[in-house]
Amino acid sequence: MKLPTTSEIIDDIEFLDDWESRYQYIIDLGKALPPLTEQERVPEAKVKGCQSDVWMHAEKAGEQLRFRVDSDAVIVRGLLALVMAAYNEKSPGDILAFDVDQYFLTLDLERHISPTRGNGLRAIVGKIRELAAAA
């Protein structure tokens, strides 16, 4: 499965009307997200989540920033795929301009990105924006 764009994700998720099919979609996205190798799952790449671990590698690709992310929990991987659709291989300007809270609100998934949730997603978004601001 090719990872979809943010507008494709919004269309897909809005079409699904019960929690099971919506989360099944997220789980499937999680499975499609290319995993990091064991060697890449290093402590320096780790972003602390309370209930599951999250890793991220970032690099410059021309004018764009490229990210590779992973988690040991598949739902978090699916949520990371949603974040990647927004940020991966985008310019720093596009990254900073993207309203991630509105995006998760539209998807009705805002509670996953709230600061009270310990899944590392908020931390990943913060780190991506930090890298974009410094680029």
């Binding site: 929690w19 989360y23 789980i27 309370c50 209930q51 599951s52 040991d72 929990a73 598949v74 739902i75 978090v76 899944n119």
Partner: peptide, 20 residues
Amino acid sequence: AHPADLGFLLDRQGIAIRTG
């Protein structure tokens, strides 16, 4: 299945457990 995934999917069904 990662415990966090189980906890999450149980929560959606109204079942509160702890994971971690």
